[in-house]
Design a protein around this nucleic acid. Structure first.
Length: 809
DNA sequence: GTAGGGTTAG
């Protein structure tokens, strides 16, 4: 029985060609048909089952048996079915040379066309004695790597072992490379160890396999072993190892390699030098990166791009854009990565003109449909507040990935179009795009803004199913969402389920307690955090001080405030000072608040004056209120709230001329009163109401219901506070105007549509008026419901006629 | 004969 050597066939078999005239159906002719001639069972049944257990893997790779290796019996899925291939399994003598050539031709054709499973069936059907040309095997392995078909690849590896060819350098290199592409470094290493005479390529592929799989330390180890083995790295090895250093910011090792290049011990070229530039960038050594870049004899588009991205991502956006221009002067054509880098610089620089220019270049160079570039464009336009331009890019993208969708979701959320965010998220699900961690952060933010608790809960379930609920960032987003939706208990449950807390998770939960007036809980948690030795940050203190102010813990507030710098080395910000003004103001110490305000090193910040104004309004200190309101207006002329508060004071004093004067100032400053809007989520749908809404399909019923309710309220003692209406009109009209405020419409609608006694959750875009605050207290009592209204200032929990804010409105 | 470098959201 001689071994049959076969060269690659010079012809290829066509579909259904029958070579032997006496061949019966179901023998040779079946092999030429490019579909599996044998039943290929799927993974579950064991046909191409993965070898996942390390033990199996070891057994598989350490076997030197020339017969088929059948680990755990899983390869038995491909049993040859008699009588179909009995002839093939017999001996090679039964096959004529011509017949074998035809089979090999067919195998090659199937490999090229991507019919890998069929090609594998054919290969394995050949008698073991048939020697296969290494060209076919290497091509086969290459295709497996390209298509990440590790199961087929493993069987070719097995086949090669059966042939005893696993020690061959050329085939061995191909095997490692196949495993490298399939991200199976353990198998790659077994194949690497099998090679008797490893060359520089064997070592380089193995190093690259580790580097591409995040096993950088192993890559570095192998690089050392290679040199000990007296194999001289070439420039490909060098660039690969430098990239490995970049990825772990291994500056010292990178620098050592750099020195070896300078000393002429290692090869270099433009690729190596670009990798060096990148290594210094990733190690935060921008100056050294620039030095290498400047010293380069020749630079290509990659070298330029690396440097542009370095500046774009390190707060030197102008330098990045200058370099971008310079590169074009040097005649280097930007590629899609360069343009992404330039766009990133424009986004951070907030320069729309530059952004439009880069966008134009992207179109000019034909990169418009590039997915990453599109994503960068959507992001950039959303940063400029041009969500519509982002949407245009998004709609035109021929291919979108999860990042494209997430960027568009963010663009909507950033613009306050949160209803669109939820709608788009639904579309995304319809398209079968799997959301990632960042998508969840974005969508939870939208649920939080919209008070969409039901949708938030569903997303929470989806997060749990993807095992992301213990992640700290996702955890914070969930805590925030539940907190904003008024579900403090759920927020706490999420917090308790996070195993490893950091300052952000602690702060999120403290902030939820604080926002809901649960000051004691906030302070207890803050103390627990300190006991756990977690250092609070600026935001933690804003929440803690705010809790102190809500709870009236003046001494505690001062103790915390004084510890800021002394104990925690945090310089108090305007937010902290505003909290302190609030602490004093809420307790009615207006004079002291004023003194503190005049004394503090930061006084020109509007947040501090807003706190002062709220306190003055709450305690009817009209003189101070006028003073604080005017300061607020001076500092932020475009913000409407202080004008309204000031007007309210004058309305109460019946000074209509003053009210008109303020209106004139508003006109001059171009301040528009925002239309009051409230929304409520009913069965996954967000219903939005504007003041005196006429558009809602059930508005008549709502009006009727509201009429009945208003009567009951008045019977219980509610008197509309007509002096909060900023219009000089008849009292009856004022009463009417108050009655149809959007939050009241939303509450009545919620009452009509939900089971009795369930909690109603309303979100309002502006600060609720004082009369509504009073009216909703009555509503909560009459309707026997807890009503949560989150306005632009805080969350109010109305229950049994009382509000959690204790009327510090 | 086989191998290598730059990438967006947060």
């Amino acid at each position: 029985m001689g071994v049959l050597e076969v060269d690659p066939p010079c012809f290829s078999a066509t579909k259904g060609t029958s070579l032997a005239s006496d061949s019966c159906p179901g023998t040779f002719s079946d092999l030429f048909v490019r579909k599996p001639v044998l039943p290929v069972k799927d993974d579950k049944e064991g046909g191409l089952a993965p070898l996942d257990a390390e033990e199996d893997l070891h057994r598989f790779h350490s076997s030197s048996d020339k017969r088929p290796v059948v680990p755990s019996g899983r390869f038995q899925g491909l049993t040859l079915e008699p009588p179909l291939l009995d002839k093939l399994r017999a001996t090679s003598e039964d096959l004529s040379l011509a017949e074998t050539e035809v089979i090999l031709g067919s195998i090659k054709e199937n490999i090229i066309e991507g019919n890998l499973k069929t090609a594998l069936e054919q290969l394995e059907s050949l008698p073991i004695e048939v020697r296969i040309n290494s060209d076919i095997l290497s091509l086969f392995l290459k295709q497996c790597g390209k298509t990440k078909s590790v199961h087929v690849g493993r069987r070719i590896h097995n086949y090669i072992k059966m042939q005893g060819l696993q020690h061959d350098t050329f085939l061995g290199n191909h095997i490692i490379n196949m495993y490298r592409h399939c991200k199976d470094t353990s198998s790659a290493k077994y194949a690497f160890d099998d090679i008797h005479r490893k060359n520089v390529i064997s070592w380089t592929i193995m190093i690259s396999a580790y580097a591409h799989n995040g096993q950088y330390e192993l890559a570095l180890q192998l690089f050392n072993d290679m040199q000990k083995d007296n194999v001289r790295p070439d420039k490909v090895t060098v660039s690969t190892i430098i990239t490995a250093c970049s990825n772990i910011s291994a500056r010292d090792q990178g620098r050592e390699i750099h020195q070896m290049i300078i000393d002429g011990k290692l090869e270099s070229d433009v690729v190596v030098e670009s990798a060096l530039v990148n290594m210094y960038v990733k190690s935060n050594c921008l100056e050294e990166a620039q030095k290498v870049f400047d010293s380069m004899r020749s630079r290509n588009v990659v070298s330029w791009t690396t440097m542009i991205l370095a500046y774009a991502q390190n707060n030197q956006e102008k330098k990045a854009l200058n370099l971008f221009e310079q590169m074009e002067v040097f005649g280097v054509i930007p590629n899609e990565f360069t343009l992404v880098g330039a766009l990133s610089a424009c986004s951070r620089l907030r320069s729309l003109a530059d952004g439009l220019n880069v966008h134009g270049k992207a179109v000019y160079h034909g990169y418009e449909s590039h997915i990453v570039l599109g994503n960068a464009l959507i992001h950039m336009y959303s940063k400029f507040g041009h969500w519509d331009l982002g949407l245009k890019v998004f709609s035109k993208m021929p291919m979108k990935d999860v990042i494209s969708w997430t960027s568009m979701l963010d663009a909507y959320t950033e613009e306050g179009r949160t209803k669109d965010t939820l709608q788009l998220f639904e579309e995304m699900n319809w398209e079968g795009i799997i959301p990632d961690k960042v998508t969840f952060l974005s969508i939870l933010g939208a649920c939080a803004d919209l008070l969409a608790l039901e949708q938030g809960k569903r997303i929470h379930a989806s997060i749990i199913s993807r095992k992301l609920h213990t992640d700290q960032m996702v955890g914070c987003a969930l805590i925030h969402m539940y907190g904003r939706c008024g579900s403090v208990e759920s927020a706490r449950e999420v917090f308790d389920n996070i195993q490893n807390h950091n300052v952000h998770t602690w702060t999120s939960m403290i902030s939820v307690y604080s926002q809901h007036g649960l000051s004691r809980d906030a302070l207890i948690l803050f103390n627990e955090m300190l006991k756990e030795d977690v250092k609070p940050n600026e935001i933690t203190f804003v929440s803690v001080l705010s809790a102190c102010s809500h709870g009236g813990f003046i001494a505690e507030a001062f103790r915390c405030f004084n510890s800021l710098k002394r104990v925690f080395d945090i310089t108090p910000t305007a937010e902290h000072y505003a909290c302190m003004v609030d602490v004093l103001g809420r307790a009615g110490f207006l004079k002291e608040a004023e003194e503190l305000l005049k004394k503090m090193p930061i006084s020109g910040d509007v947040v501090i004056w807003r706190s002062m104004l709220s306190a003055c309004v709450a305690f009817n200190d009209t003189q101070r209120a006028k003073w604080a309101a005017e300061e607020c207006i001076k500092l932020q002329p475009g913000y409407s709230a202080p004008y309204v508060m000031l007007s309210n004071i004058f309305v109460a004093e019946d000074q209509w001329e003053e009210v008109a004067r303020i209106q004139r100032i508003m006109d001059i400053n171009g301040v528009k009163m925002q239309l009051g809007k409230s929304s409520i989520e009913i069965k996954d749908k967000i219903h939005e109401f504007v003041v005196d809404d006429q558009a809602h399909p059930q508005i008549e019923q709502i009006h009727a219901e509201l009429g009945t309710l208003s009567k009951k309220m008045e019977e219980c003692g509610y008197v509309p506070m007509v002096n909060t209406v900023l219009h000089d009109v008849e009292e009856e009209l004022k009463t009417y105007m108050l009655k149809y405020h959007s939050e009241r419409l939303a509450i009545v609608f919620g009452h009509m549509m939900t089971p009795s006694k369930s909690t109603l959750r309303i979100v309002k875009n502006l600060r609720m008026c004082f009369d509504c605050h009073c009216a909703i207290k009555y509503m909560s009592k009459i309707l026997e419901r807890e009503i949560i209204v989150r306005d632009s200032y805080c969350s109010h929990h109305f229950k049994d006629g009382v509000c959690s804010c204790l009327d510090y409105w």
